[in-house]
């Protein structure tokens, strides 16, 4: 199957910036896979998400060169700051989550059903009647992800989607992303949470200063987890174990 997003020799620069935010970019995003994007702060992961989902340069301005093919019929995107993603127009969480499908003019029953399913997936059904303005940061973040899922996306792009969640909430969210990929969704997630990313990602892309420095199987790429750092410092040869279980297995008894 053709990749849902394909970039070939792409470069992107924000308006009024001489230096490109991304350069020499060639990558595929495939259906049924979780692709993690990571790199030092400011390396361009957030910009890559905007380009891959088709938001840059359409809404951000700037210039994109090279080849970009986006085959997604229904892209869903979740940005890093949940409080700027509320419409501010909804009385209840249920209405907020329903905003996306309602925008596409689907019949009311279908809109409500999509919203209910998405709230169930994120475990926020109990918040359905709450005023979105009164939610805590963690609740809000879950509602924002549910709002993207209500679009029933075939490409789901998320920027650091667990920053506001407590550890149990973050575990649940990452598990859900893995489960969505199994159903055929293409998931592209920018994150610094390499431990959780390593659990679900099939592929990982490592950026540095706007360029891809590694792109391959997650097991070979996400070598910045705490377990991998410990293993490397303690003399473990590559490939490095990414989590505690793998590290324990690699130790000779």
């Amino acid at each position: 199957m053709k990749p849902i997003v394909r970039l070939v020799d792409a470069a992107f620069a924000y308006p009024a910036c001489e230096a490109p935010a991304l350069a020499d970019l060639s990558l595929d995003v495939r259906r049924g896979e979780v692709t993690a994007v990571t790199g030092p702060v400011g390396a361009g992961a957030s910009t890559l998400l905007l380009v891959a989902a088709g938001f840059a340069p359409r809404l951000t301005g700037g210039t994109l060169t090279g080849t970009r093919e986006i085959l997604a019929a229904r892209p869903g995107i979740v940005f890093a700051t949940p409080w700027t993603q509320l419409t501010g127009l909804s009385r209840t969480v249920a209405d907020e989550v329903a905003f996306g499908p309602a925008s596409h003019g689907r019949p009311p029953a279908a809109v409500r059903a999509a919203a209910r399913r998405a709230m169930d997936q994120l475990g926020v059904a109990h918040l359905a009647a709450r005023d979105p303005a009164t939610l805590s940061g963690g609740e809000l973040q879950s509602v924002v992800v549910a709002s993207a899922l209500a679009l029933e996306p075939d490409l789901l792009v998320l920027d650091d989607p667990a920053a506001e969640l407590d550890p149990a909430g973050a575990d649940a969210l990452y598990a859900l992303l893995g489960a969505l990929a199994v159903t055929g969704v293409a998931v592209l997630v920018a994150t610094q949470d390499l431990e959780r990313a390593a659990r679900i990602a099939q592929r990982a892309i490592l950026l540095e200063a706007g360029r891809v420095v590694a792109d391959g199987p997650a097991a070979a790429t996400l070598t910045g987890t705490d377990a991998a750092l410990i293993a490397r410092a303690a003399g473990c040869p590559a490939p490095l174990p990414l989590d505690v279980d793998a590290l324990v297995e690699r130790l000779a008894r």
Binding site: L50, L59, T81, T87, V111
Partner: peptide
């Protein structure tokens, strides 16, 4: 915030051109 909100609304089909469904 406005910049980010424009992206977020667009991402949820606000500019899809379809006639929005009024739920209630």
């Amino acid at each position: 915030e406005v910049e980010e909100q424009v992206l977020a609304l667009d991402a949820r089909g606000a500019a899809s051109g379809a006639r929005r469904t009024a739920l209630d």
